[in-house]
């Protein structure tokens, strides 16, 4: 894993960018609110005020975290260049970490279920494919056990929600 100090460096750098974006977007909201039909010209009552404040606070806090990640301490990288070098050295190791690969594929399967299967197939079919696929991927048991668990879990959920709670499922 990437050392905590390097992680904080990357995280805070990304947050500085997010804070700047939020501030700019806050000003854009202020300009939209100042134009008709809203005509809210005073900044103090503009709907853009709070996002601007939050953006600025986020930038300040992120810069503080960034500075903290650069302060020397036993074992950590220091300068931004060294931080980036550590990050570059760490990236290839990502593809050798079995845990991370498993988690990545698991998230991808969950993404396919949410963004693809549920949208295009009946809920029972989408869920059956998802549970079956996920259990097979995780090698949760022999194939017959995986099929029985998938059918039982999807059937149980349908029974509980559609029959007992009478809720309309996706």
């Amino acid at each position: 894993m990437l050392p905590p100090r390097n992680r904080d460096f990357v995280f805070s750098a990304a947050l500085v960018a997010l804070g700047v974006y939020a501030t700019c977007e806050g000003f854009a909201v202020y300009e939209r609110a100042a134009a008709p039909p809203f005509k809210i010209e005073a900044m103090s009552v503009s709907p853009g005020l709070f996002p601007i404040i939050l953006g600025i606070v986020l930038v300040i806090l992120s810069v503080l975290l960034l500075i903290k990640s650069l302060i020397p301490e036993e074992g950590g990288s220091l300068a931004p260049g060294e931080q980036l070098a550590a990050l570059a050295a760490w990236l290839p190791t990502l593809f050798r970490n079995r845990d991370l690969i498993n988690m990545g594929i698991g998230v991808a399967i969950m993404g396919v279920y949410v963004f693809g299967l549920v949208k295009n197939l009946p809920y029972w079919a989408a869920s059956l494919i998802f549970v079956l696929g996920m259990l097979l991927f995780l090698r949760a048991g022999p194939w017959w056990k995986v099929i029985v668990i998938s059918l039982a879990s999807v059937g149980g959920v349908l029974l509980l929600f559609q029959v007992v709670f009478r809720a309309a499922l996706p």
């Binding site: 969950m110 279920y113 549920v118 259990l135 995780l138 959920v157 996706p170």
Partner: peptide
Amino acid sequence: KKILMPIIFMLCVIGSYLINYNMFDVKVMF
């Protein structure tokens, strides 16, 4: 847990969907 978690995720999808009966909330959850 490898058996339990995919089923829990199915419940997460339903729990998010039932608030407004809107798939957008499921995507927000993700």
